[in-house]
């Protein structure tokens, strides 16, 4: 496997990925976008603009490229180098800085490759990185292993909605007992929070509408049932239509006032609040 790695001078994460390749005997070519590799990176970025994430603070490095596949940021790069495409879905581009790594999704990948997933988390922890993981509750077995090995410093659980809408919101069949099992684990992480994005739902009749305050109350109730607590740090977040992939969702007006949702959520989760 011939890898090109795009780096930035002084980027510690890039060094970790280069070290990983050296340990595995993977040959690579480094292009430092702040030094000699600047022109090469600009050409690469120009040709692959849609595949490279550029956040408000710029482009996250490292980026690896094998002539066909592009993986950006430390987690996704290591996962690809370790297991190819098997771990796709577990890692996306992170946005945290210094020792913190995010963009790690317990529910996003295939649980059959849990061991490969955990290997990457262990590798990152061995390099003194702090990990912020996310879950929607799916893959509670993997979550349990993450917990047992102490691989997450922060766990964020996105509870998508009430029980009767969970599969519809996830876009796949969901075993609600899997979600409840994850909720039962969440309080054991060193730091955690639970949140729900007030998302649009494609209703049975095909219409699109946001989750209602009553449905958020049921979501809070689900959290209580799964976790056994009505005092969890539960945050509500507004959906941002501009960032939606579904073109129908992009047509929606953003919700301005989340207070009715908070009021309803507090029926079952007394510390529910609005994430700003």
């Amino acid at each position: 496997m011939d890898i090109t790695i795009y780096t930035a001078t002084g980027c510690a994460r890039c060094k970790i990925v280069k070290g990983f390749m050296e340990e595995r005997g993977i040959s690579y070519v480094e292009k430092d976008m702040k030094a000699d590799g600047k022109d090469d990176f600009q050409a690469f970025y120009k040709a692959n603009r849609s595949a490279v994430f550029r956040g408000p603070e710029g482009i996250e490095f490292p980026i690896i490229y094998d002539g066909e596949n592009i993986r950006q940021s430390i987690g996704a790069a290591l996962a690809f180098l370790h297991a190819g495409k098997k771990l796709d879905g577990f890692f996306t581009v992170g946005t945290l800085h210094k020792e913190w790594v995010n963009g790690i999704h317990v529910s996003g990948g295939d649980p059959r490759y849990a061991e490969e997933f955990l290997y990457i988390l262990r590798y990152l922890k061995d390099k003194n990185m702090k990990l912020q993981l996310e879950t929607t509750g799916k893959n509670s077995g993997v979550l349990k292993q993450v917990l047992d090995e102490g691989l997450a410093d922060v766990m964020i659980m996105d509870v998508l909605g009430p029980e009767h809408l969970y599969s519809r919101l996830a876009g796949e069949e969901i075993d609600i007992e899997d979600i409840k099992a994850s909720l039962g684990l969440i309080q054991s992480f060193p730091e955690y929070k639970i949140r729900t994005v007030i998302a649009p739902v494609i209703r049975e009749d095909g219409s699109v509408s946001y989750l209602t305050p009553e449905e958020i109350a049921l979501t809070a109730k689900l959290i209580g049932e799964g976790s056994g607590s009505n005092k969890l740090p539960y945050m509500l977040k507004a959906f941002e239509p501009k960032e939606a992939q579904n073109p129908e969702f992009r047509k929606l007006e953003p919700i301005v006032n989340l207070l009715p949702y908070r009021s309803k959520a507090r029926t079952y989760q007394v510390f529910a609040d609005i994430e700003k």
């Binding site: 006032n257 207070l259 009715p260 908070r262 009021s263 700003k276």
Partner: peptide, 11 residues
């Protein structure tokens, strides 16, 4: 008893 509007000074 529903809160329908909120303003926070620190913001």
């Amino acid at each position: 008893g529903n809160i329908v509007w909120e303003w926070c000074c620190n913001e």
